[in-house]
């Protein structure tokens, strides 16, 4: 396939995934912000939301204080934030249009439909219930698009590039969300004390749609060590770094098989995956959660770079 087509598919997947992740982050922030302070509501929730998307500098250059209004505008609607939900959907749809021939009808209709629907939401007149509606819309649009891809795309190299985009973006997002909260994931081993932490944690899990999964996997109340374990190492957790890398590695291996040769991206992915697979969560805490995550985000970016150099230009 054309390198440009592969590149466009890869980024199309990333942008749709990013839109959904951002919607989830906003959802979690809204939930926390509506709680009274004593039960876990905190005024810096909005700053955390911006931090979780890795765009603090841009936010500060555009707005003053991080409030519900400014953060919602920034993350959901701002034309000046290249990763705002609106821009993600715009770019995704533009990409989809550019590689329409590589998409199935269902995928095109899902993304084009989302883009048309997006026009019905106006950032300036957002009310709380309307915002809830908007966030559900974004999540559903992403699910529909992803589901269409999963059910209708040919299992060929195009599908591999598409999935690789999804998993790299998802890994990046999970790592960032965890990093923002890494300070409350400590101290190690202690059970969660009061209401505040509890709500913070359940919000993290909720933001990656993992609260119920947590209970199924561990069958006990929320513990920092286990939250980290779930989101970093558990293979069965589809948002975990391990799971994302298991999948990314698999699709890179498919590409290598299809094309009859492998390169730096396969080696990098396999190395990262092997490291994650053999790791214990205690090691992560020993290294320091923040240091570990910063390392991971860097590694993930390097893999993206390698894929790009090997296939996409």
């Amino acid at each position: 396939m054309l390198s440009r087509t592969a590149d466009t598919l890869y980024w199309l997947a990333r942008y749709v995934e990013r839109a959904e992740n951002t919607a989830r982050i906003l959802d979690a922030a809204l939930r926390l912000a509506t709680l009274p302070a004593g039960y876990g509501g905190s005024s810096n929730e909005w700053e955390s939301a911006v931090a979780a998307t890795g765009s603090e500098d841009l936010f500060r250059s555009l707005y003053g204080e991080a409030t519900q209004a400014t953060v919602v505008d920034f993350l959901a609607f701002s034309p000046d934030n290249p990763s705002s939900i609106r821009n993600c959907l715009e770019i995704a749809r533009h990409n989809a249009r550019a590689v329409r021939t590589a998409l199935t009808i269902e995928m095109w209709e899902a993304i084009n439909g989302a883009w048309l629907e997006m026009k019905r939401f106006d950032g300036a007149t957002m009310t709380r219930p309307r915002l809830g509606e908007f966030l559900s819309f974004v999540k559903e649009a992403s699910l529909r698009f992803d589901g269409s891809a999963y059910r209708t795309m040919l299992r060929n190299d195009a599908f591999d590039f598409f999935r690789i985009g999804v998993y790299l973006e998802r890994a990046d997002s999970t790592a960032r969300i965890l990093d923002v909260k890494s300070h409350i994931l400590l101290p190690e081993g202690q059970s969660v004390g009061g209401g505040l932490d509890y709500f913070q944690w359940s919000a993290i899990l909720r933001s990656v749609s993992a609260l119920t999964s947590y209970h199924w996997v561990y069958r006990e109340s929320l513990r920092p060590r286990l939250v980290a374990d779930l989101l970093i190492l558990r293979r069965e957790m589809p948002r975990s770094l391990t799971s994302c890398y298991e999948n990314a590695t698999r699709h890179l291996d498919y590409l290598a098989r299809t094309y009859g040769r492998q390169g730096p991206s396969q080696r990098l992915a396999r190395a990262s995956y092997a490291r994650l697979e053999s790791m214990e969560i205690t090691t992560v805490f020993a290294t320091g959660m923040h240091a570990f995550l910063v390392d991971f985000i860097g590694e993930n970016n390097r893999l993206g770079q390698a894929i790009s150099e090997q296939y996409l230009v």
Partner: peptide
């Protein structure tokens, strides 16, 4: 392009080497 089952290329996807036209693929 879709109905024909051929690649939809832009100028930047093509290059010419020794008077033969190629497209850049993965």
């Amino acid at each position: 392009a879709d109905k024909l089952g051929v690649e939809l290329v832009e100028g930047s996807d093509l290059f010419v080497s020794e008077n033969v036209v190629y497209m850049r693929t993965t």
